[in-house]
Every structure is written in C-alpha cells, then in structure tokens.
Design a protein around this nucleic acid. Sequence first.
DNA 1: CGCCACTTTGAGTAGTGTCAATGCTGGTGG
DNA 2: CCACCAGCATTGACACTACTCAAAGTGGCG
Lengths: 245, 245
Amino acid sequence: MATCSCEINACVLCEERLYPGLTKEQVCQIRERLIRELYAPHEVLFREGDPAVFLFALRSGQLKLTSSMPDGRQQILRIAVAGQLLGIETFKGQRYPFTAEALTDVVACKISHDDLRQILAGSPAIALRVIETLSQELDQTESLIRDLGLKTAPEKVSSFLLSLIPQRGDPGAELPLRLSRREIAEMLGLTEETVSRVMADFARKKIIGSGKGYIRILDRKWLEETNGVENKASSTERRAQSGHS
Amino acid sequence: MATCSCEINACVLCEERLYPGLTKEQVCQIRERLIRELYAPHEVLFREGDPAVFLFALRSGQLKLTSSMPDGRQQILRIAVAGQLLGIETFKGQRYPFTAEALTDVVACKISHDDLRQILAGSPAIALRVIETLSQELDQTESLIRDLGLKTAPEKVSSFLLSLIPQRGDPGAELPLRLSRREIAEMLGLTEETVSRVMADFARKKIIGSGKGYIRILDRKWLEETNGVENKASSTERRAQSGHS
DNA sequence: CGCCACTTTGAGTAGTGTCAATGCTGGTGG
DNA sequence: CCACCAGCATTGACACTACTCAAAGTGGCG
C-alpha cells in the first residue's frame, strides 16, 4: 500500500495492482485526483443535462439512473451496483444523459474526465479495467432492452423478481426491496397500478409473499418456467421467424 | 503511411496516428493481427450463444444486432454503423449475447480478444479510442431503452425516423431504408401491423413520403415537436413528479 | 390525531396486439 | 409473354392488455 495522503483503497480505479509500472509517488498522484464522496438515499449525484465534468466510480450502495421526458414520464435505465462506473457515456459527450440518484447510502469516487484521460493514457491496466466494466454495463443495458421490448407485464415483473435473487442465497429468504412500486414501474416501462396488480395476483397465487420493504419468493420454479404467464400456449409457436438465407 | 504488407488503413483500430510511440514495424505487427472480411446482406457474422473469439470493427455498411427468446420473439438491440465495435460485450464473457447480421454489404475487421488485449496493453491511444466508441454505444443503447420504456407507438416510430437523418445532410433528401416493417417493429417493440399503420398515418398527414426502400422526411419539425402525437395536451402536465427530499 | 406518501382496488377505455383477407412486387418456370 | 408463387406491406374487425382516472386503504411520523 502506497504511503501517501490519500485514503482511498478499494474502488475500481484505486487498487495498487492496477499501476504495475509506476512508482509509489506516481500512484499517489493519481489517487489524489480522486475525490471520495458520501451520499444518502434520495440524494442526487448529478442530473440529466448537467454539464458532465466528473466520472463516478461506485464503491458501495446502489444508484438508479433515470431519464425523463419533458412531460414527466420517467424511465430507469439501470440500477448501478458497486464496482460500476457512471457517466462514462459522456466521455465524448458534453452533458450527462441521465440523472443518478442514490437508493441506499452510497460511497463513490469521482474524478474529472480530463484527469481520467491522463490516467488512462498512462496506465493501460486501468484502461483495460474500464473497458471491462463498460462492456458489462453495455451487456446489462442490452438485457433491459430485451425485457422492455419483448415481454408482457407479468413477464416483466417476473424477470424483475428473479433478478432480485442473489447468486448464492437462501432460496426462500426474505429479499430486501428498496424500490417502490413506482420505481419498479419506471424500470419495466409499466405503471404503478399495473405493477401493483401483477404483484397482488402473484401473491394470491402464492407465488410470492410480500411485506413492507421486502419480498419472499415462494415458487421460484413457477416464475422461471412460466415467465409469469399462466397459459402461453396460444401465443407461442406462432411467431417462428423466417430466417433469411 | 507505414510500408508493410497490410492493406488496412481506415478502421477504428488501424489509423496510424493511434500509434504515436511505435515504430512502423510495430504498427505493422499490430495491423497484421487484423483480418479484413466482407459480408453480403443477410450474412451472419456470428450468432447469439456462439463462443466469443473475435471482436469486430465495422468499417462500412450496417449491421443489426438481435436477441431472441425461445418462442421466437426477436428484439433488435441496435443497428451498428461504421466505426463501431461489435462483441466488446464479451470482453469478459464467453459467448456472444446477440446475433450480428449484415443489412448491407459490409466490410469489417476482426481481431481475437487475446490479440486485442495485447494491443490495448501496449497502446493507450487505442484503448482511449475503444473507450470512446464503447461509451457511444452505451449511450445509443440507453436511448433505445428510453424509446422502448416510455414512448407510445407513434412516438417510437417518430424517433426512429428522426434517427435516420444523417448529421450533415440534405434535410429533404431521400433516406435509404434498409429495414423491413418487421425489422422496424422488432427494434421498437411493436408489431409489423402497428408500424405499418403509423407510417401510413404519417404519410396521410404528409409528414413523410415513402417509397420502396427509401423514405423522405417532409416535415421534420412536426416530428421533433409533437414526437409523433397529435394532441398531447391531456397527457401532459399530469405526471409531474414529486421529487424526493 | 391528522397528514403524507405509498399502495391497493375498481371501472372504463385507449391503444396495440391478433387474426384474417387483400394488395403489391419481383422472381421463376411454363 | 404470361401465370403463378413467395414475401412484404396494407387494411379491417375484433379482443384484450395495460393505462387512466378516481377512491379508499395502510402505515409512519410530527
């Protein structure tokens, strides 16, 4: 660990092993360009349309990234989790293309695009790391497109619920649910009421149990197999593609 | 121009100015790892689920990137244009997350991920270029989410049409339209019939003129201002957000 | 207690999807 | 040359999903 004034040790851009060829002084120089900040739930890191000065690296907590239309309709582009970068879209752009709002307590590092450019120019290892992170975010974003474009309301809610299940966790455990009905709706391209109705329906069928601030998946298999729809027979097999040459 | 056997000069990874510190021999070494390939319309570069070996840089032409569900429903994730990279999502992944199919005649360079990694490690300028390209693609993808999640059918078609207009071009020129109704529908999360109806409606209103394989924007202003919807008054101003804290 | 934000539920409807029929165009083979 | 066919586009009738608007229920907090 470099012995410099900075106290930043754990974020995407900060790990010492990312700077193999550099002296400790140089590492410190880089780290000193990072600014660590804390945010409380509902705090806004930046707003859609703001001049894009900083890039943010999320160290802990969750953020929602949203975009709004002039009339107030709002869409959640993605939920950012620890390790991801925010605002890299503006690397060549002038303004943030979305608003970033904390869902939980959040720790983030920020760095100006100019500084980042310099760091990237000097450290291919970091550049590689950034490219990897970016490509994951692109992948995540493309998944949401799949959900939005091809799925019905119950299917959307179903895949949303399944996405809440952690990789290694108690199957029947209570899952914390920080998003309001409105936010789930904004993520899935639905309305508050529709989400509420679908969830109530799932609860009536004993697929899920819901309480305040949490949810419990009672029949994961059903969700996975039916995608949230009782009878897909009629709507299946019909749309088989032609598939050119 | 370096004097080596390679004949590649114009793609994202190939320009000489990207390799400021390298000798001509080194530049040639890099270039020789690139494989230039030609594809005809409807040819498939790779399929969703294939093991991801190569990254592609699109030099000319257009591609559609699609993802399918088991029952045949298909979603276009984005249309790739010259200058973009394909399959960078798999930089850390094992398999291509979508199918890439040529819409036009296409020239693309491909390079293995391993080679790319080496090049990136040695050339921060290229890494920067890749990051810029990626961030643009992320931005483009997020735009599609906006369209899919919060727009109505006429709004979707409207923003699709506007996206066809080149940055610097004759406002009233005929725009080539290589996508079928079905493909436009697959991109916007609509059905063939709905797209057809909306376009017919626009044509009736003299907003666009359409012919075989091309389209002409007659009233760009109208599309931009109304987003394709006649009377938004009633649905506007209603959904003003509360805005926490 | 009363207020506020969030959620649920209901009734009615607009907007899309579904299904089916027809039209158009280009290609193929008689 | 024309008849036929296949693929894409258009149009219409109808069904149904999800949205809109309205009202009432719930729980937290000053």
